[in-house]
Amino acid sequence: MSEDQKETLPPSSGDGGRSGRDAASSEAVAEGVDAKRTASPSAGGEPGTKPQEAAPKREPAAKREAPPKKDAPPKEPDPREAPARALLEEVVAEVKTVFPDAVEGAELQKFRPVLLIRREYWRDVLHLLKTGERLRFRYLECMAGVDYPQGGYIEVVALLTRMPEATMIEAKTRTPRDAAELPSAVPVFPGANWEEREIFDLLGVHFEGHPDLRRIMMPDDWRGHPLRKDYSPFE
């Protein structure tokens, strides 16, 4: 966040109207971002250590911006944190009892449990997450594919919801870019059909066992997969 003070304005259509108000103080800008964090009592606590890193580089504006950045590491615990972590642990434990080596990683993304699944187990784990006695994530809310050329893999994400509590978890898996292939989730979630076709079309992931894997957005004779980061329409 430290570069927020650069005076460049986004060239967007919309911001002209409020620029007058915003220009009033650059410190307001910094406050806006961290409004929640600065509310914690520790915010003003240790300004003493601060200036030595921030001061040499910049004018006074930089100094003001520094304190919120400083108390970022401690982070007061959010009330949403604990239940989310409990859910994450519970889900990971459930999955591990059935598939001991299926879970490659587990973390929280904005208080949403995220499970990284080994791709051989992708469909089995989704099936377990849907039907497991204590899991019951039976509503596939969204599927997406993300290309990471630096890592050499494509990530496929499925957001699953437990109804009616509306508890959401995210299951994802990775497949190498040059031979992108995954077991299809359609036998588990019929609603994954078009989502997978879209991921196949735009990112080039082959879903094994998909009943009808064809392009859905681009013309049938299109070459390449537009949402890949290295896609160029001019080749």
């Binding site: 966040m1 927020d4 460049t8 806006g32 904005k110 809310e141 969204c142 959401m168």
Partner: peptide, 19 residues
Amino acid sequence: VMGKVPKILRPPAGEYYSG
């Protein structure tokens, strides 16, 4: 009708979903 927001919006690195 407009809150205090940074001039350049940079959401912290991560994955987000909201419906």
